[in-house]
Design a protein around this nucleic acid. Structure first.
Length: 376
RNA sequence: GGGUAGGUGGCCGAGUGGUUAAAGGCGGCAGACUGUAAAUCUGCUCACUCACGUGUACGUAGGUUCGAACCCUACCCUGCCCA
């Protein structure tokens, strides 16, 4: 994997760059749609290409391991082949499931003992198993196994958890070095900064993560319920401590304005379930603001969903029609809303990139954010 | 004409003397959702009042009772069966 820094904003830390992987180029800053189980929910691969213009998508190690399982993925020749996606893929390690499935797991030095949310069966996830599974999935970018502590966490717990994540990281790096890619192309490991909302822990973690000299670095443990300003503070602090010449990935963030603010702090990559999940629940992100399409006020609004972006379904279908599909529980609603939101997110980061290259990103961002937050 | 079952809030449907402004579902109106256990979850949904509360409500009209959606009488209406 290769990262080229192409431009820097004049009044912020925002950067424009280019990541080159075995499956193609990613122009940063970038938003990566989440496709947990090998599917960006409700959106076919063809639309990810044509309408959303996704450059890279996410998969999840924990979920793919449980279903369809590594045997099937290996037989298919890896996740790219299996799902018919020839652009880059990033897999999360299952570290987030250590957090979100907290009730179904036991932590130890060795790793996390999970109870499957599907059938209750028990599975041990460790640095080694997670690296091996990600070899079999075959994503271009793979994530280190980490613990994502909840918010709020007390200092002692946050420190202990961070140190565990660091020890797990060392094991991930070692395991990856001892094994080979299965499908003939390189896989890059990204380590993850933790440290909850404590500045000194974030500093320590950033330094440690950077010292591993991986191809890129990730900021984890944010957007788990903490106030936005704390998230920005932690994010900025991590970015400042990370090397310039490597991509920075802020995991799980966020709203459109979160993304712009964090681009300004120096983040290059984002992922979030918000555009897809909230879309399926009737919340639309558009270039004019936020729409709850189930609300009665859209009943007879026959204007296009969002004319501000270059996406066929956003221009073709009306708000009134999409509302009708939601109210009628029609499956097409889920697709249109998800495609709208993802297209908007990708459009937003593309615009951000252009403004960074022009050097006026900060000004543009400050002007556009009130509009992004505006509820229509 | 005879018999029989039944008429409950926008709809369907529980409830058969007090704890019932009336279960539950649907429909309706809002809100939440941030490395996906999520096509999910949470409120509200008779009227007036910020609220305490008050007033109307279980086909209609009477009656019994301290007290009725629930018991009695008459009437109206609906489904089904027989002529």
């Amino acid at each position: 994997m290769d990262f080229k820094l192409l431009a820097k904003d004049t009044h912020s830390q925002a950067r424009a760059g280019e990541i080159t992987t075995a499956h193609g180029v990613i122009q940063t800053p970038i938003f990566m749609p989440v496709g947990t189980v090998g599917s960006v929910k409700a959106v076919p691969q063809s639309q990810l290409h044509k309408d959303v213009k996704a450059q890279i998508i996410l998969g999840n190690t924990y979920h793919l391991y449980l279903r369809p399982g590594t045997d099937i993925l290996q037989q298919a020749g890896g996740l790219h082949q299996f799902m018919g996606w020839d652009k880059p893929i990033l897999t999360d390690s299952g570290g987030y499931q250590v957090f979100s499935l907290a009730g179904k797991r036991k932590l130890s030095e060795e790793g996390a003992l999970f109870q499957s949310h599907i059938d209750g069966s028990r599975h041990m996830f460790s640095s080694e198993t997670v690296m091996d599974i990600q070899r079999k999935i075959g994503a271009d970018i793979i994530m280190a196994f980490d613990e994502c502590p909840p918010y709020p966490s007390d200092y002692a717990y946050a420190k202990k958890s961070m140190e565990l994540t660091h020890r797990w990281l060392a094991r991930c790096v070692k395991r990856l070095a001892e094994t080979e890619a299965l499908y003939g192309y390189e896989q890059s490991l990204f380590p993850i900064i933790q440290g909850s909302t404590f500045k000194d822990l974030r500093q320590i973690s950033s330094k440690f993560i950077a010292s591993m000299e991986c191809d890129g670095n990730a900021i984890g443990g944010l957007s788990v319920g903490e106030p936005e300003d704390i998230m920005y503070e932690m994010c900025g602090l991590c970015c400042d401590a990370l090397p310039q010449e490597k991509p920075r990935y802020l995991m799980g963030v966020g709203t459109p304005w979160n993304i712009l603010e964090c681009i300004a702090l120096g983040v290059d990559m984002f992922d979030c379930v918000m555009p897809t999940r909230n879309g399926r629940n009737g919340m639309l992100f558009t270039s004019k603001g936020i729409i709850n399409i189930k609300n009665k006020k859209w009943e007879n609004d026959f204007s296009p969903i969002d004319e501000g972006i270059d996406c066929e379904s956003s221009n073709f279908y009306s708000k009134a029609y999409l509302r009708h599909l939601f109210v009628s529980n029609e499956l097409l609603a889920l697709n249109i809303a998800s495609v709208q939101n993802l297209s908007f997110y990708l459009h937003l980061v593309t615009q951000a990139r252009q403004h960074i290259q022009q050097g006026d990103f900060k000004n543009w961002k400050d002007n556009i954010i009130p509009q992004l937050k505006h509820r229509l």
